[in-house]
Amino acid sequence: MSDATAKPEGGQIRPAWGAVLSMALCVAMLIASEFMPVSLLTPMAEGLGASQGQTGQAIAISGLFAVVASLLITTVAGRLNRKWVMVTLTGMMLVSLAMVAAAQSFAMLMLARGLLGICIGGFWALATAVIMRLVPEAEVPRALALMYGGQAIAAAFAAPLGSYLGDLVGWRGVFWALTPLVAINLLWHLVALPSLPAGRGRSFGTLIAVLRRGYFARGIFAAMLSWGAAFTMFTYLRPYLEQVTGADVTTLSVLLLVLGCAGFLGTWASGRFVGGAIAAQLKLPALVMGAATLGLLLTGAAPVITAGLLILWGAMNTAMSVIFMTWMSRNVDDAPEEGGSLMVAAIQASILLGAVFGGALLDLFSIHATLLGSVALSVAAVALIGNGRKMLKPGSGPV
């Protein structure tokens, strides 16, 4: 295995696209592992003797641990080489998947999901900073889009395959099937990732200093509202499609596949169009996804229209990550790991709160209330972002 750095003589970064692809596969595995319960929500709830709302909290608990891990990773990892931190986190994901597949109780499931949350928080907190070290600055948006292409792949195939295979081999069999893929990814990390020394030491106080930047704090809150809106709806998409659209297992799998394939459209578009006027792009996720969710409320009984709305939602869901992480890489470029930690903590907290909020609305009222809550958060995000200018660092120019 190579331990060479990505910087040759002269200080110029030599693009390490193999390492970027390894990161992309890790993203795909993380997304598949984190959100597989969405496509398997109903059978998992039945198998563990819990309500659908309670089982949705399995996503929430991973988010809780991810928040803590993302805030502590730069301090706990200290001066450890970031390559080996990534390898360790991927190994933890492998252990978590095996624990989920073997879980005999709801408590065991939650413990396994907590371990996955540590992996999620640690990986995402460092991912953008790692990408910034693997390719030249001008290639960062493209590399981010490629890495988030792993998100599109997972969204395209994990949910529909999870739903379909879960009907054939059971939800445990689906989680067992993920383990060899993660093992391959672990080996790829060992071969492809260059040595990534940590550099200077970091402390929790550094995070506070970055968060005190007004423009960044505003952006963090906007990200929380945007992701919170998305996962208030997405966590409970299967019950919606079953109850409102009347989808059987086959139709459900097709609709989830449509949703996931739309992620490829978002990846393609973000790799080409994200990065210019980034301020104006920040409100697009909440605006487009909120409008699509509102459309589902009004027309959700029509499968064809539902599919069209899910295409819009899925494409923007992938683009949202590239938009906000490109914004972060440019506006906190002097402290990318700290900025990444705070961004991931905000996003994971939003996923947690969105799952809790949506589950409460579902259990107390109806699935329609869950989607309406998602729309309300989207409106709040758009209102906060405005033209995006207040989320740019001073002296950043016209974009």
Rank of each mutant, 00 (worst) to 15 (best):
M147N: 15
L168F: 07
G122N: 04
L134G: 07
L146R: 15
A198P: 12
L115N: 06
R113L: 12
L211V: 09
L109W: 06
G114K: 10
L115P: 13
M110A: 12
A103H: 08
R113S: 10
A101H: 01
A112M: 07
Q104A: 14
V182T: 06
L190Q: 13
G162D: 04
G205P: 00
A155S: 09
V169K: 07
M147G: 07
T179Y: 01
A183E: 04
L165T: 10
M110L: 15
R202A: 01
L181S: 05
W171L: 01
A107N: 12
L207C: 03
P180V: 03
T179N: 03
I184Q: 02
L115H: 07
V182I: 11
E139C: 07
F175N: 04
L193D: 11
A125L: 03
L207G: 08
A107E: 14
N185A: 07
W124R: 03
A198G: 10
I208C: 12
L126T: 01
A145S: 15
F157A: 08
L178Q: 05
P197L: 14
A112T: 12
G114L: 05
W188Q: 05
R202V: 00
A155D: 03
A177F: 01
A156R: 02
M132A: 14
G199Q: 04
G173K: 08
A103Y: 06
H189D: 05
R202T: 00
A209Q: 13
A154H: 10
G170W: 10
C119T: 15
T179P: 03
P197K: 12
L115M: 12
S96K: 13
A159L: 15
F175C: 08
G117C: 10
A192H: 11
A183P: 03
V130C: 05
W176H: 06
G205L: 08
F175L: 05
M132G: 12
S203W: 01
F204R: 09
V169C: 13
V182Y: 02
T128F: 00
V100D: 09
G166H: 11
F106L: 13
I131E: 02
A112W: 02
A158C: 04
G166W: 11
R113P: 15
V191C: 08
A198E: 03
V182M: 05
A155N: 09
A152W: 00
P197C: 08
G199K: 02
F106R: 05
A158Q: 02
R133F: 00
P160H: 07
G149E: 14
